[in-house]
Design a protein around this nucleic acid. Structure first.
Lengths: 249, 249
DNA sequence: CGTCTGGATCCTGGATCCAAAAAGAGGAGA
DNA sequence: TCTCCTCTTTTTGGATCCAGGATCCAGACG
C-alpha cells in the first residue's frame, strides 16, 4: 500500500549529492529529438504550412512517438513550429508576417541590451567575438546553414552578454533564433548573408575603437538592412495559395 | 501492411472545411490541466523551489499523467515552472532575480508598444479599458487573486493592442503574466495592488484627454513603482536557504 | 456535371505499462 | 557517535495501446 506521504513537500535538497547537476549533456531523448528536428527543419526538410507527422519523425529517429511530442512542444516554444489543437504541429506558414513583427521587437531589445553591455565587454569577449566572426565567415563560404545560424546567434549573444540581465540575454537569443530561421527560409540567397557579415566586421571595428555609439548604430543598421531587404523582396506575397501540384501516384 | 506514403507532404488544405478553427474552446485535456495548474500555482498550493509531483496532479484532476506532462510543458513556456532534466518540474525558486530581470524588459517593450498604440485606441477600446478597470477594482476588493491577475493582464493588453504588431502584443502578455505571478508570490500585500489601481485610473484619465505622452509616463511609472517597492522589500534575500523544518514522522 | 453526404482511413491525444534514475533510509565500519 | 555505503522506494521518462476526430474519397442526388 502506498502509504500517504506525511509531508506535503520534499525537504529542499539537504544533501548536495547531485553528481549530474548541469555538468554534462545528460540530454534526455526528447532533447536530442528536438535537436535533430531543428536541424531537419533548418535543412529545409519541411515546407511552410506543412504538418509534421509524429510517427514519421519517430521512426526516422528510432524512438517512440512520445519524446517526439515533447520535442515538438520544445520547438513550439522556440518558434520553430506552431500547434493546432487537434491537427498537430505545423511549420509556420506566414513567415513574412512573423518577420515583420519580430524585427522591431528585436531592434528595441537589442538597443536596450547593447547600451548596457557594449561598454562592459572584456578583451576576452572581444577576442571571442572575433573568433566567432571568422568562424562564421568560413561557415558562410562553406554554405553550412545550421552552423552559420549558430555562429550568428553566438555573435549577437556575446554582444548582449554583459548587459547584466540574464533573462534579456535569453530572450534575445530565443527571438534571434526565430528571426534567423525565418530569414533562412525566406531568402536563402547569399548576398544578404554577405552583407550581414560586413556589418559584423564593422561592429567589431567600432568596438575595438571603443566607439560604442557607432557599434550600436551598426547593430541597428544590421537589423534594418535585413528588414528592408526582406520587405523589398516580399512586398506582398504574390499568390495567396500557390496551388502546388497535387501528389501524383 | 501500412503501405509507404507516396507523397512526402499532405496537399496543403485544398478545402477550407475547418468548422472548428478557433471557434469554441475545444480545449484539449492538457490545456484544461494547464489552466487548473495555473490556478493552483497562483493560489499558493506550491511554494518556491518545490518540485511538482506529476501523478499527484493527475490524480487530483482525474486524468492520466500524460496530459499533466504536456500541461507542465505549457506552463514552462509561460514561466510558471522550470524544468530540471531528470528531476521534473519545479516552481522557480529565485523569483527575486527573475523579477529584477523582467522589469526592464517589460518597460522598454511597453514603451515601444505604447508609442504606437495609445494614439490609435478607439472609443470602444477606451470603454473596454474602463470596464476592465472597474472590474479589477472589484476583484481587488474581493481579493480574488486569479481574477485580478487576469484583469490586469487584460488592461495592459488593451493598451498595447493597437500597436500593429501581433507578436509584440503576445510577447507582452506572456512577460506580463510572468511578472504578475512573481509579484503575486513576492508581496501579496494589498497596498501595492491599490497603488497599481491608482495608476490605472491615471492612465485612463490621460487617455481620455488624449494626452498620450502623459499616459505613457503613467504606464512607465506603474512599472517603476512596482520595481522600487519590490527592491526595497527584498533588497537582499536574508537567508540563502531558509532551512525549512524537516518533515516529522 | 457539380455538390453534398456518408463511410473508410489515418493521425493525434490520452491511458496504461515498463525501465531507469534519483532520493531516502538503514546498517556497517571507523 | 558520525560518516559512508548500499538497498529500497518513489518518481520521472519512454514505449505501447486505444479511442476520438479530422481528412479524404466515393457515390448519390440535384
Amino acid at each position: 500500500m502506498p502509504k500517504v506521504r506525511p509531508a506535503p513537500t520534499r525537504p529542499p535538497r539537504p544533501k548536495p549529492s547531485r553528481p549530474w547537476a548541469e555538468i554534462g549533456p545528460v540530454a534526455t531523448v526528447a532533447e536530442r529529438a528536438a535537436e535533430a528536428l531543428r536541424e531537419k527543419i533548418l535543412g529545409g526538410a519541411f515546407e511552410p504550412g506543412e504538418f509534421i507527422r509524429q510517427d514519421d519523425v519517430a521512426r526516422g529517429l528510432g524512438v517512440s512517438r512520445m519524446p517526439v511530442r515533447e520535442a515538438l512542444m520544445i520547438l513550439t516554444n522556440e518558434g520553430f513550429v506552431t500547434r493546432v489543437p487537434r491537427r498537430g504541429f505545423q511549420i509556420p506558414d506566414r513567415p513574412v508576417r512573423a518577420l515583420v513583427d519580430l524585427y522591431p521587437i528585436l531592434t528595441v531589445l537589442e538597443r536596450h541590451a547593447g547600451k548596457a553591455s557594449l561598454s562592459e565587454l572584456t578583451p576576452a569577449d572581444l577576442a571571442h567575438l572575433q573568433r566567432t566572426n571568422t568562424a562564421m565567415h568560413q561557415a558562410v563560404r562553406a554554405a553550412e546553414a545550421a552552423r552559420t545560424l549558430g555562429l550568428n546567434l553566438e555573435f549577437h549573444r556575446i554582444l548582449a552578454s554583459r548587459c547584466g540581465n540574464a533573462r534579456l540575454v535569453e530572450l534575445l537569443e530565443q527571438l534571434g533564433r526565430e528571426v534567423l530561421q525565418l530569414e533562412f527560409w525566406s531568402f536563402a540567397n547569399p548576398t544578404h548573408r554577405a552583407i550581414a557579415d560586413q556589418e559584423h566586421d564593422g561592429i567589431i571595428a567600432a568596438l575595438l575603437r571603443r566607439d560604442f555609439a557607432e557599434a550600436l548604430r551598426r547593430m541597428e543598421a544590421n537589423r534594418l538592412l535585413a528588414y528592408d531587404a526582406f520587405r523589398k523582396q516580399f512586398e506582398e506575397p504574390p499568390a495567396p495559395r500557390p496551388r502546388r501540384a497535387a501528389k501524383r501516384k
